[in-house]
């Protein structure tokens, strides 16, 4: 018979919660995706700027946002097929990063086209958005690293607004990308592998 005592019921509840809690499903994919995408976007933006093709800068950002959207949807679909379940934290994390992508499209493409602000402001705005995504991911995963990365992105956005020297400006942004997205992405990827025993 499958009937159980009340004490056994408590054990089953604990066991099932622990079983799913032990799994670190988030592999740092979105951190790496955005780290790599924005790095490429900066190089393209720099080239377009040097070539004085200013009108194409917005379109390059739009291209990367749409590319990121397609990659994110494919990734979340594959993750679900592989895992066999959509856990609420995973759903929360993918919603945060997909939401970031939509906001980035407006911030880096639509608003500058509408002449809401100058192109250099885009970096500070992107930093603010990446800060929010990192911070929220950290809260959901109960991981300090993405929380700190989120705060660093927010602090970095101030520097990106006040720095006037082009080299210093780009150096700060690239440093923020490496420290806040690429390194945590690799770290979270390793953590997921370790916890899932792969």
């Amino acid at each position: 018979m499958d009937q159980i005592t009340n004490e056994q019921a408590l054990e089953v509840i604990k066991e099932m919660i622990e079983r799913t809690k032990r799994k670190q499903n988030y592999t740092g994919f979105y951190h790496l995706l955005w780290g790599v995408l924005i790095s490429i976007a900066i190089v393209v933006m720099y080239i377009l700027h040097e070539a004085q093709l200013y009108h194409l800068i917005g379109y390059s950002w739009a291209f990367f946002c749409i590319g990121g959207a397609i990659a994110s949807v494919i990734y979340s679909k594959r993750t679900y097929e592989k895992q066999g379940s959509i856990q609420y934290p995973d759903l929360g994390i993918s919603s945060i990063w997909i939401g970031l992508m939509i906001a980035m499209f407006f911030v880096a493409f639509v608003f500058p086209i509408l002449k809401a602000y100058e192109w250099y402001i885009v970096y500070a705005m992107v930093s603010l958005l990446l800060g929010a995504a990192n911070f929220s991911t950290g809260i959901l995963l109960k991981q300090k690293m993405p929380i700190i990365n989120g705060i660093l992105w927010w602090i970095g956005s101030i520097f990106l607004l006040i720095l006037e020297n082009q080299v210093a400006f780009m150096s700060v942004f690239v440093l923020l990308l490496i420290v806040n997205n690429i390194i945590p992405g690799i770290y979270l990827c390793g953590l997921a592998r370790k916890q899932n025993g792969k």
Partner: peptide
């Protein structure tokens, strides 16, 4: 109040959907 049914419900509580497998 059955081991399997309770386990199913607890697992589903933490997921939006889950596969049979």
């Amino acid at each position: 109040h059955s081991r399997v049914r309770l386990a199913i419900i607890i697992l589903l509580l933490q997921s939006e959907t889950a596969d049979f497998t």
